[in-house]
């Protein structure tokens, strides 16, 4: 087995009274496609947001590529990283949001080149060439100069995937990438994600698309009330779930 890219150890998080995550531990290996399933409020999205530090953990730790996130150890004590250091750690992950969050004042191409040019200080021509290649890859080369408002939901989400890929992340995080889409637009986004999975990208996907998980995921994790109930190979968890809670969830969604 390859080394884990993500190692989550005993992570807990509360929002006021609400226990969003409770002692969650999980490994994601290089090249693995891991789908997180579960009812809303089960903590899957919070877990994803902790990995790119849009949410901070209360206790426990997440190691990405061997590096502890958000904290550093010095003299036997933990210190919070500066915003700049956190921004640098974020570059290792790409995030795709449920509601796309494309920048509406920029064209599709500008959305994709913004990070490489402004953050990574890459040459504009190189970034543009790579962005065009990414747009071709998600099937939107003809829409390079379109503004997000001129694109359908499915097209916007494909641009958002290209925007995340442009930063050359080692891990892609998808937060319910098809939940805000009209049913007929789900397929085009899923097929881009399948292609990405085939290319060997390490992916964590929060999804309600059990069919997608069955087809693409190496591992499926079922969460409930902030804890991992069951995890294992997709065929086992989806095909022959051991836990009663997993069984009742799956029978409700399929």
């Amino acid at each position: 087995m390859t080394r884990p890219i993500v190692a989550i150890r005993s992570v807990s998080k509360t929002f006021g009274e609400f226990q969003a995550l409770e002692r969650v531990s999980l490994d994601v290996r290089e090249g693995e496609v891991l789908c997180l399933i579960g009812a809303s409020g089960s903590g899957k999205t919070t877990l994803l947001r902790c990995i790119n530090q849009l949410t901070s953990v209360d206790s426990g730790g997440i190691w990405l590529d061997g590096e502890l996130l958000g904290l550093c150890e010095e003299g036997g004590r933990l210190h919070r990283l500066t915003p700049r250091q956190i921004a640098r750690q974020r570059l290792k992950t790409g995030m795709v949001f449920q509601r796309f969050n494309l920048f509406p004042h920029m064209t599709a191409l500008e959305n994709i080149t913004e990070g490489p040019v402004q953050v990574q200080r890459r040459k504009r021509e190189d970034a543009r060439a790579e962005a065009m290649e990414l747009l071709r890859r998600v099937g939107l080369a003809a829409k390079a100069d379109a503004y997000p408002a001129q694109l359908s939901g499915g097209q916007q989400q494909r641009v958002a995937i290209a925007r995340a890929l442009a930063m050359k992340p080692m891990l892609m995080l998808f937060d319910e990438p098809t939940s805000a889409l009209d049913p007929e637009l789900v397929g085009e986004v899923l097929s881009v994600m399948k292609e990405l999975a085939r290319s060997g990208m390490t992916m964590m996907v929060v999804t309600h698309e059990v069919g997608f998980a069955r087809e693409v995921a190496d591992t499926v994790v079922y969460m409930d009330h902030g804890a991992i109930v069951e995890s294992g190979p997709a065929a086992d968890v989806l095909g022959a779930p051991r836990e009663a809670r997993t069984q009742s969830f799956l029978s409700a969604v399929i």
Partner: peptide, 22 residues
């Protein structure tokens, strides 16, 4: 929308750059 700030953070922008650019 708060999602705009999160998207800017997700591509590695700091607070001031996100404010200025996004």
């Amino acid at each position: 929308d708060a999602g705009q700030y999160e998207a800017a953070q997700a591509i590695g922008m700091g607070r001031l750059r996100a404010l200025r650019r996004i």
